[in-house]
Amino acid sequence: MSTASGIHRARFDHVSLEFATPKGQLRVVEDVSYDINDGDFIAVIGPSGCGKTTMMSMLAGFQKPTSGKVMFDGHPVAGPGPERGVIFQEYGVFPWLTVKDNIAFGLKLQANHVPVAERDQICEHYLALMGLSDFTNSYPKHLSGGMRQRLAIARAYAVKPQFLLMDEPFGALDAQTRANMQNLLLNVLATEGKTVMLITHSVEEAIYLASRIVVVTARPARIKQIIDVPFTYPRDESLQERPEFGELRSHIRELVMSEYRAQQAQLRPASFSE
């Protein structure tokens, strides 16, 4: 069952999930199985509302599958934990803390054992890296959406989780900042050797960053195709000029578009009935 290369860290094993809604059971994830191996970079791509966030939150420990198993390090996921860092789609920046205190939040927690002397240094490092130094003592209400997103990323990186779950982490950023953040992530991975599950809308982002791409269907999310990305690390932006990159992009784009059309077809009759 398990893939040949590496040790699997996380596993979705025939996972399905239904939400109880006032209109009845809503099936959001259906019979999803795949492994995430140590050092993998998995990108999950699919139409919005299909169930990507739900899938990730089962691995993060916030949802329990209705059937099947979600495993992490050999055990069924029982709840959230600091070894699985999460960057939320809604950022979740703490509004009552300044920018610096947001980054320091995790560093001050007992579980992370960061000596007081190092905290400031780590904060400064990420403030500079994320271009937030001028806002060190500002409250999040003074930040733009893109800055809040970078703050959420900094806060998650600061505690150095070995496994990163990232839910559309660069969605609010302009093209230039987004490219910077992607390269920064590649750097962090090269130096710290992380395992990543990233949800994205962008086919280019998925190919540029990931070692494997999981294309999921319109709701309920099923696996449409799992694609190995044939490029080795380290990668740089010249990769995006290569013809193989373009071919892969066309292929995945076609897969995603067909699911997008399927979703539209699902939605149309529903909108008539309302």
């Binding site: 993060a60 420990g61 916030f62 709840g79 959230p80 934990g81 600091p82 699985r84 860092g85 999460v86 939320f88 809604e90 979740g92 703490f94 939040f105 995790g106 927690l109 007992q110 579980a111 992370n112 806060r155 998650a156 505690v159 989780p161």
Partner: peptide, 16 residues
């Protein structure tokens, strides 16, 4: 629950 979830994923215990 978002902020509580964020804190949990950063490693916060119940009391924290």
């Amino acid at each position: 629950p978002l902020y509580i979830r964020v804190a949990q994923t950063l490693g916060a215990g119940e009391f924290e």
